[in-house]
Design a protein around this nucleic acid. Structure first.
Lengths: 195, 195
DNA sequence: TCTTTGCAAGTGAGCAGTCACTTATTAAAA
DNA sequence: TTTTAATAAGTGACTGCTCACTTGCAAAGA
């Protein structure tokens, strides 16, 4: 019986959740299977999280502090809008690629939709992403590099489709996919939209 | 005890599935709740479909014969590429708007992912949409109205993000949303990408 | 009549979460 | 530096519940 600190176990549990979702599918995400995957008893899971829902909420918090912080820093930096847009897209897609399962988890929870708090959390994440992209586009217009007639909010919605499209593609065609090339091409297309 | 032909009940059941998903969330899609919603006993459901999975597969078949037929007709018509792109986008989004719940159903099933056949069906649908869009773009290039340097497949992926983005938006912000305006704006942005 | 459609009351499996109890680790007292 | 007590981490059987699906029987309608 190996014993570990609760901080360590919490990380293991959250990692296992994403692993199960990405590799076995959402329907295999039972506390039983989760415990088995870590090599722990089912009861022990509930030592570290008071409910399954709490695990999901904790993962959402991670997204908010990891991904969103990164994206916020990029969007609000002093660099030219063009560079920020590029960095933003690459950071965004790379995060989703490294943490496969996150998008599925987030949207499955939103689709299941009985949990108001979870829905709010997701909305908060997406609204901020939309806002940050809108800001970059707005700044680019002020710099004079992009078309002033562009509807900023709709352009941001178009942007948000990219990570979604990416995730669908990776879920359905597991990994036969060059991430860097994908980002590079999408960046080029986005520049076309804006100029 | 009202009795109806199995064909009629099948339609009622499938409509109820989409209704539950769109208005109560995926987690409420139990055979119990489904029966209750139609005003039927649970057992009667299984008179008309041999399993819950079969209901989902039947809905997918509907998508394939309704939406895909429509999109195929548009994409393969003799009209100018520009018009086809516009019609395609509008038909696509309108279908998803009228049949709310379809996208959630399709992607939730893909995320749950233990069912190879369901995954294949979804992949087939998306692959055809991608192909049709690719064709429209290709034709537009030949007509000389669009930039020949555009990567057709990636532009198609960017397009596919639009219905996804649309669905996320409608799930999270129930209907405070002008569909026509959304389509119009997205169409404009797509033209920017291509020219 | 006899096939089709319906209902009520099942079934077993799987679910999240709990509980009484055990064991490892830490730290204070002897 | 041991001994001892407190606590953190783990176990696995069990609970109540929901799930998809089945069964046996009733009644409608061709």
């Amino acid at each position: 019986m190996i014993r570990k600190k609760t901080e360590v176990r919490k990380e293991e549990i959250k990692a296992a959740v994403l692993d199960i979702i990405a590799n076995e599918g959402f329907s295999m995400l039972s506390t039983r299977n989760l415990a088995k995957r870590i090599g722990l008893s089912e009861g022990a899971i509930f030592r570290h999280f008071k409910s399954k829902r709490d695990i999901i909420l904790s993962i959402m918090e991670d997204v908010k502090s990891d991904l969103q912080d990164k994206l916020r820093n990029i969007a609000l930096s002093a660099k030219p809008a063009k560079n920020r847009l590029r960095e933003f897209l690459f950071a965004h897609i790379n995060y989703l690629y490294k943490h496969q399962g996150i998008t599925i988890l987030l949207f499955s929870e939103a689709a299941h939709m009985n949990d108001v708090k979870l829905k709010l959390q997701l909305n908060e994440i997406l609204m901020e992403q939309k806002l940050l992209i809108t800001k970059i586009i707005h700044d680019g217009k002020k710099e004079g590099i992009w078309n002033k007639k562009i509807n900023e909010e709709n352009a941001a919605l178009l942007y948000l489709g990219i990570p979604l499209s990416f995730n669908v593609e990776t879920v359905l065609n597991r990994n036969k996919f060059n991430v860097k090339e994908f980002c590079e091409n999408m960046y080029k297309l986005l520049l076309n939209v804006l100029k």
